[in-house]
């Protein structure tokens, strides 16, 4: 073998080794979920008698479907609203010259530094006063418009050429028409990245649902899973593993579906930002 071939072999061996680290825990969990009742949880890594019983149990013996439903609703509200509101605000901050723009932008960027844990208690109280506790809308309030989303969209709008927008104005279009028909299609990769971020965050959010939800009928998957795992050393580990795998599948599917746009959108943003 010549040196290029050796090099390739080395690159692939390293890449496969890292894959074992990044994907290994999923497989380990999947194998535990597939183990039958006759096999101990930690009794070997591979299931000797693979069965889907634990997945069926996850649906039948827990409120998994209820948790799934809650999570789907919350995510289905959060993603479109964050895309809409963040791209509106980001557009104004990138393209329209107006008094107060730099103040608004500075405030929005500054809030990105503030840890959620600082204001979670006042937010908890406000949510109660506004009747948002134990509601689906209440679980979306951190995601329906985000400082990060606005900043991210603003950067994207700054990076697309103005020419198309200017010719649309000459044709008599107003700001809203130009934003929606001309500018939005140009930032599609960034919108998709923001959609994935928002989806991932909302689907897996833990701390806010934990404090804003007191009724088990409103639990999201994350809270439901955490509750199930309270008795972690009990016999329900296979069930928890199955539920964990099921919880992850939607995230994985959406990511794999959109990853082509996502990774390019993200690298563009990072390159130019």
């Amino acid at each position: 073998m010549d040196s290029t071939k050796w090099r390739k072999l080395l690159v692939y061996s390293l890449m496969i080794f890292i894959t074992v680290i990044t994907v290994g825990p999923f497989l380990y969990t999947l194998f535990i979920a597939l183990k039958s009742s006759g096999q101990g949880i930690y009794d070997g890594i591979l299931p000797t008698d693979p069965t889907f019983t634990n997945f069926v149990y996850a649906f039948n013996q827990t409120d998994f479907l209820q948790y799934l439903w809650n999570t789907v609703i919350v995510t289905a509200i959060a993603v479109p609203f964050n895309l809409l509101f963040s791209s509106m605000a980001g557009y104004a901050l990138a393209r329209i010259d107006f008094k107060g723009r730099s103040i608004v932008l500075t405030i929005i960027i500054s809030t990105m530094t503030v840890p959620f844990q600082l204001y979670m208690a006042p937010l908890f109280q406000s949510a109660g006063e506004l009747g948002l506790r134990n509601t689906h809308v209440g679980l979306t309030i951190l995601q329906i418009s985000t400082a990060f989303g606005i900043y991210f969209m603003r950067q994207a709008f700054l990076n697309v050429p103005k020419d198309l927008e200017e010719s649309a104005y000459l044709d008599g279009a107003n700001r809203f028409q130009v934003w929606f028909n001309v500018a939005i299609p140009l930032v599609k990769p960034t919108l998709i990245s923001l959609a994935i971020y928002t989806f991932t965050f909302t689907w897996g959010d833990y701390l806010w649902p934990l404090i804003n939800t007191t009724e088990s009928s409103m639990y999201t998957l994350s809270i439901g899973l955490a509750q199930m795992s309270q008795n972690f050393n009990g016999g329900n580990l296979k069930l928890i593993s199955a539920a964990s795998i099921l919880t992850t599948i939607p995230s994985l599917l959406i990511f794999i579906w959109l990853q082509k746009y996502f990774i390019s959108g993200q690298t563009d943003g990072a390159l130019k930002g």
Binding site: I18, T19, T22, V23, P25, F26, Y28, T29, I32, I41, I196, T200, W203, G204, Y206, L221, S222, L225, A226, S229, F232, L237, I240, S241, S244, T247, T248, S251, L252, I254, F255, Q259, I263
Partner: peptide, 18 residues
């Protein structure tokens, strides 16, 4: 390599706990 990023943190924590 990106899969762990989109994995819900609760799931990640439970997997590693095992």
């Amino acid at each position: 390599y990106y899969l762990p990023v989109v994995t819900p943190i609760v799931v990640a924590a439970l997997m590693w706990k095992m």
